[in-house]
């Protein structure tokens, strides 16, 4: 009888250990995924900031060449300060959107200034800006990929049980309200 009890106890203990360790591993996976989502969100900010940093250089380089386009350049500078000062997700995405608009207008104007287009500094800046626009859209894309993985994990069995228990909430996808903004501004040189 005693050996029987011992055996049952042993089975119970082993079962309990198994359950505990799987809960721990699910919890850890959820934490890892949530951190990746956060990190992906931070990446978007990094790239937006990089764009803000590049713009003064661009304006400085272009100034000497596009004397008649003072307004276009001022618009970029204004949109940049607005984007840097904007608070909250909605405001920021709007401000960044108008910055993109101002930039694409500028790049259309550039077409008329072959000297500027041949400038080494400008060419280098142009590559950096094109790439930064790409990086912004790839960062958004990566964020959505991470959110998808995270949300899937939260909804799927058995992790959905523990996600509710430990308060892992679903994350929102990054969505651009204006369909035009979904694409990086058409930078044509």
């Amino acid at each position: 009888m005693m050996t029987m009890m011992g055996l049952i106890l042993l089975v119970l203990v082993v079962f309990l250990l198994f359950v505990l360790s799987s809960v721990a591993s699910i919890y850890n996976i959820l934490v890892g995924l949530r951190n990746q989502v956060k990190n992906a969100w931070a990446q978007i900010d990094v790239q937006l900031k990089r764009r803000h940093d590049l713009i003064p250089n661009l304006v400085e380089t272009a100034k000497g060449y596009v004397k008649h386009e003072r307004e276009t350049l001022e618009n970029i500078t204004k949109a940049r300060s607005a984007a840097m000062g904007a608070q909250g997700v909605a405001d920021r995405s709007k401000a960044e959107g108008s910055l993109s608009d101002a930039m694409s207008k500028f790049f259309v104007v550039v077409e008329n200034y072959p000297d500027l287009k041949a400038n080494q500094n400008f060419l280098a800046l142009q590559e950096e800006l094109t790439s930064t626009e790409n990086k912004i859209s790839f960062a958004r894309q990566a964020y959505n990929d991470q959110v998808l993985g995270y949300n899937n994990k939260i909804q799927m069995f058995p992790s959905n049980i523990f996600a509710g228990m430990f308060n892992f909430r679903q994350e929102q996808f990054f969505q651009v309200e204006n369909a035009d903004e979904r694409q990086a501004p058409k930078v044509s040189f």
Binding site: A40, E127, S131, K135, A139, Q141, A142, Q146
Partner: peptide, 16 residues
């Protein structure tokens, strides 16, 4: 090679 470097960085971001 800024372009190559930028492209790799873009893909690094896309791939997280």
């Amino acid at each position: 090679h800024p372009q190559l470097f930028n492209i790799v960085e873009e893909m690094k971001i896309a791939a997280s």
